[in-house]
Amino acid sequence: MGIIAYPPFSAEFRDYDWVQIAGFANWVVWIDPSDPQYLLNVCPEIGQSLSLRVRPRFVAPQQGSFWVLYRPALAELNGWGSFPDMLDDSAMVECDHVGNPDALHPHQVSIHVRDVLRFPDIVTRFAPTSAGSLAVEPFRRHDGYVQSFSSKTFTYIDRNIDSDWGTWVVCQRTGLGYAVILFGAWDPERSHVYVGHRLLSQNETAALGLPPP
């Protein structure tokens, strides 16, 4: 059975009351409409019809929409760690499923772009909150391999265990202190991202290794 296209909140994330959007991260990639051999290198726009290359277990809904992470091509291939400035050009994209894979393109689905939420706009789209929990203690303990990279606007912190599973966060400094705007979780069975405007306490800020705001 394939995973559903709007990922359920696992037990690990049930008390994440701050989450406004749940979507897919690395299970799908955006295809350049001018040449399907290449990845899309410009942020999707509302109203566009595009295609996604998906993993075999991905199942898009026949009705309703789902959210997908967009990263510029180089960041998609090599990660934000290699290109942290591309955090500013990344987005969450709401998609309507309009076409199934076919014999020629067995791992490709057609979508219509319903909404685009660029990373710089997340803190204005959603009100700040301190509700719910945030699993940052493993970052403090360096439980796994932890790396941190920053652009002018965002800090991306990645943690993985033997490259088998991990979590990551994207943080932004605001007038109220630091906020987590995305929290990602991945393993061989999933690659989900959770989006909101979660203010960090002093203890959580320290756990993530961020300097005092």
Rank of each mutant, 00 (worst) to 15 (best):
G177W: 01
F58A: 11
P212K: 12
Y178C: 05
Q147A: 10
W165A: 03
R125T: 12
T205N: 06
T153A: 09
A11C: 07
S130H: 04
V19F: 02
G2L: 10
I21N: 08
R141S: 07
S201L: 01
A73Y: 04
R14Y: 09
M1K: 12
D115A: 15
P128L: 03
F9G: 06
S34W: 05
P128R: 06
T174Y: 02
V123Q: 13
R14G: 04
I21K: 09
C171V: 08
C43W: 05
R190G: 09
G184H: 02
H142N: 14
A73K: 03
C95Q: 11
Q20A: 13
L69E: 14
I122M: 15
S90I: 00
V19K: 01
I31A: 13
R55C: 11
G184Q: 00
L104V: 06
G64P: 04
V28S: 09
H97R: 06
S150P: 11
T153Y: 01
R14M: 12
V180A: 06
D15G: 06
Q20R: 15
D158C: 02
D32E: 15
Y194N: 10
W168E: 08
P44T: 11
W27E: 14
S150L: 03
P72F: 03
F58I: 09
V116S: 13
S201C: 01
A60T: 04
D164K: 14
A22E: 12
D85N: 09
A127F: 01
L182C: 09
R140I: 02
G175S: 11
Q202N: 10
F139E: 05
S34R: 12
V98P: 04
D115E: 15
G209T: 01
A103L: 12
G81E: 07
P44E: 07
T129P: 09
T205C: 14
